[in-house]
């Protein structure tokens, strides 16, 4: 999350950032990754809104995440609409339209692409007042 934190610090005054905490990618009750276990990350997929909240807090603390966090409902409505699982980046332009849609994570999760999209969007917003 280091690159994301750096991006957040660079643009936090100009861009509204939100982490949307969604369904676990590699829970202990699903597709387990040994690398997570090696790092001491053992999480069962939360089945309730309160449970998701607890894991989201633990996640933010562990990764020293500065970005504001929102917690998707257990029906996964927002994550499903955005195709956000297991992880994905988006930028919504000031016109309310999707300005950047990152690739499917983890291989399509490219912070540098989001950064370039933000730079483009801020130029556009400057050139088109109102």
């Amino acid at each position: 999350m280091g690159a994301l934190s750096a991006l957040y610090r660079r643009f936090e005054d100009a861009v509204a950032f939100f982490v949307v905490y969604i369904r676990e990618a590699h829970p202990e009750d699903g597709w387990v990754l040994e690398s997570n276990r090696d790092d001491g990350i053992l999480v069962a997929d939360p089945q309730t809104a309160a449970g998701r909240g607890e894991v989201a807090v633990a996640c933010g603390t562990r990764f020293e995440l500065e970005l504001p966090v929102l917690i998707d409902d257990v029906d996964d409505e927002v994550g499903r609409r955005y195709g956000g699982w297991p992880d994905r980046l988006y930028l919504i332009g000031t016109d309310g339209k999707i300005a950047y849609q990152g690739g499917e994570g983890p291989f399509g999760f490219k912070v540098e692409e989001l950064e370039a999209a933000i730079e483009r969007e801020l130029v556009v917003a400057t050139e088109q007042p109102g």
Binding site: A16, F17, V20, V55, P68, G84, L89, I92, G96, L114
Partner: peptide
Amino acid sequence: PDGDRAAIGEFVGVRPVALVFGSY
């Protein structure tokens, strides 16, 4: 996580909104 609610619609139209989908 604080128990509040946030609507991204409050920011759309004012400034760009970056969304980071992910889990632990």
